[in-house]
Design a protein around this nucleic acid. Structure first.
Lengths: 338, 338
DNA sequence: TTGTACGCGTTATCAA
DNA sequence: TTGATAACGCGTACAA
């Protein structure tokens, strides 16, 4: 069923059918009615593939991400909604063997290029030179917007998170509460945002006159269990227990709290705990978890909007946005409200 | 940059370039090398839009779902992975105003039809006559696979959940533990799977000689807060407290536990609680939550595999699969291990 | 107001 | 082993 069939059925030419489909003027009411009737009867739907070929526009946005999981679902939801509102479809690509495989990421960029999407949103984790080369190639063809963190040497339009300020604010908060031994459970080392937070943690300590102690730092893998293990590691390693912990995500913070509970350490009386992300369950665990909230929905919305604006030429210049954040105090800290 | 440019650069015809791109025989080594070199140098990527137009195949799967959230992320992840492995792209469509809007669902079906995806996976919630009509129309063009629950009158290939057996098993478990007052927190009434579970609950009670008491049933909206409210409703309504609760999802079960804790009711000593879904945090709440696990990842994998098999003609007949389930006992029940 | 014919970038058929 | 050409379904000048 194509435009020719509809034309035949309604005794007009394909040009007229095209005009009706696209609501263009210059069609008599009689002809328009006949065409609409034929479309209705046959269930004809214009072939966007053919349309894309002539227009050189697909009205599809692409996403390159490491893998679909709870952390990203709000962001995807937002992107999806913006797409729908503005008449775009959404193609998602994620890795299937190793969420951190450079090779698969490149294949995903290539796939989206071949599908001739109008633009790409990239969620980077561990950025290698190959990524940079691929993006340099593809951005000649279409706009690429990046989220979370920028890539140096590559001035991409982006919606990034500020990983330094929240870390600073947390450490400063702990210091102001007279804590001397502040532990840090960091995330996987291949993810640059962890190096950033690690640095910020060091700097904040040093600036406050405290010495950085490696015994107070352990690496987890973002899971509850790895947070539990990291906390245990720190506990066993230290002769003097830490009195504050900052974990790079809520999962690990929750795992750490479990370890602390098992060791009989009371939260927040003997140790204060702060996580990161404000996942849904942060407020339902016991004690409820203090954490840093960066609105993933807003980030997705901004990124998608920026990309579509870029595509449609509404946005000429280079744009960088930095997401705000909120330090949320719940029961795992004992904030003194002044 | 298209096949003509590459042909010109390598002094061959477009037919030869096409043969090289598609690894077809009948090309001299010399010609092949020249073409590959030109492709390398120019960064040429074949235009899949044009390819789709001639082949009448896009190699894209479509998903129609109410909205992206944590509940669906594992399923999407699995579908995505199967797509990648088998050389398909994935287009996701979800609603943007109201996750339960029939109108938006129909628009999504139409969008995917226009994009000429090769097949669709549909996650139904509240199925209306309009959905049925739309599916009837679209399945003439491409295979449609449905998940979660079947639609009567529409023998679609599907990967469904068995909502009756787990409900029965749970009620039977409670009855075997001599519970007389078994509460049920059901989900939103527009979702048919709740009616199914409600019926199964009634039946199981009746068959065991217990009378169905409406005071023990409340409706929530799948959120923790709504579960809390529903539990409170039941508590306030009942002169004799229930001694067992079954909630239609883990969020509501966790909310219910919070309400019970506040009222000083001890879990599981004074009341046993069972949820549904086995969300990530079921095992981390206190007490850890007993629940029913239906593997969303497997469901996604099966649905995607079924759809691609259907598309590629590997699967001729009508297929229905029913997902298995597992009743997981944790601390919110006191199972007697025999 | 209507229709014809070309172009979009591929694949496939057929001839050379 | 090659290449010329029709077809895929649409939009759009341009002509009528």
């Amino acid at each position: 069923m194509n435009i020719y069939d509809v034309a035949k059925l309604s005794n007009v030419s394909i040009a007229t059918v095209s005009r009706v489909i696209n609501n263009k003027p210059g069609v008599s009411t009689a002809a328009r009615d006949r065409v609409l009737k034929a479309i209705e009867e046959t269930g004809f739907r214009p072939n966007q593939i053919a349309k894309s070929l002539t227009n050189n526009k697909t009205n599809i946005l692409g996403i390159v991400m490491p893998g679909m999981n709870n952390y990203y679902s709000d962001r995807i939801d937002a992107i999806n909604k913006v797409c729908k509102q503005r008449g775009y479809g959404l193609m998602i690509t994620a890795n299937y063997k190793d969420s951190n495989s450079t090779e698969e990421d490149i294949a995903n960029f290539n796939l989206l290029h071949e599908k001739r999407v109008d633009g790409i949103i990239y969620f980077p984790t561990n950025v290698m030179q190959e990524h940079i080369d691929a993006i340099k190639r593809i951005r000649k063809k279409m706009p690429v917007v990046i989220t979370d963190k920028e890539i140096r040497d590559l001035r991409l339009p982006c919606v990034i998170q500020d990983f330094v300020s929240p870390t600073q604010e947390i450490v400063d908060y702990f210091i102001q509460k007279k804590h001397k031994r502040i532990a840090f459970i960091k995330g996987s080392s291949y993810d640059r945002s962890n190096a950033t937070r690690h640095e910020a943690y060091k700097t904040a300590l040093t600036e406050a006159g405290l010495t950085y102690d490696e015994a107070l730092v352990a690496e987890g893998a973002y899971s509850v269990d790895s947070g539990y293990a990291a906390m245990m590691e720190i506990i066993l390693r230290c002769e003097v227990m830490p009195t504050a912990v900052f974990a790079a995500n809520d999962h690990m913070a929750i795992g750490a709290m479990k370890a602390l509970k098992e060791k009989g350490v009371r939260i927040p009386m003997e140790i204060e705990v702060i996580g990161y992300d404000d996942i849904e369950f942060a407020k339902y665990v016991t004690p409820s978890l203090s954490t840093v909230r960066v609105d993933q929905y807003v980030m997705g919305k901004l990124a998608a909007t920026m990309l579509i604006d870029l595509i449609e030429g509404d946005l000429k210049d280079h744009h960088e946005m930095t997401m705000g954040y909120e330090l949320i105090h719940r029961e795992s800290t004992r904030k003194v409200t002044s």
